[in-house]
Design a protein around this nucleic acid. Sequence first.
DNA 1: TCTATGACTCCGG
DNA 2: CCCGGAGCCATAG
Length: 103
Amino acid sequence: MEKTFHQKVIEVVQQIPYGKVTTYGTIAEFLGSKRSARMVGWVLNSQKNNINIPAHRVVNRKGLLTGKTHFQGINLMQNLLESEGVKVVDNQIVDLEKYLWKP
DNA sequence: TCTATGACTCCGG
DNA sequence: CCCGGAGCCATAG
């Protein structure tokens, strides 16, 4: 059973430490194809039921919480990030580079 | 097998 | 940074 794309994504996302965030592009790039950023989002959407996936730590390159629209509760994603010490304003992470984590 | 969709990103203006 | 357009990849039907 080979590791599928989404399985790798899950693996990486689970490695995101507390108080850190990453972008779809970063994950996609780590997987080999930067252009696969959309797949990362697709995977999270598919695995969003899995609480083991801290999808709230995954944002787009601008630090915008694009995924919150598909999240379980519009306020949940931002709330979680703020709880972890990540500053979020207007659905966007402040000082993204400061919190950005890379595998 | 082919088409459509998408939690994105890059390029030019 | 904003806007519009194009590209790219994997999954579902």
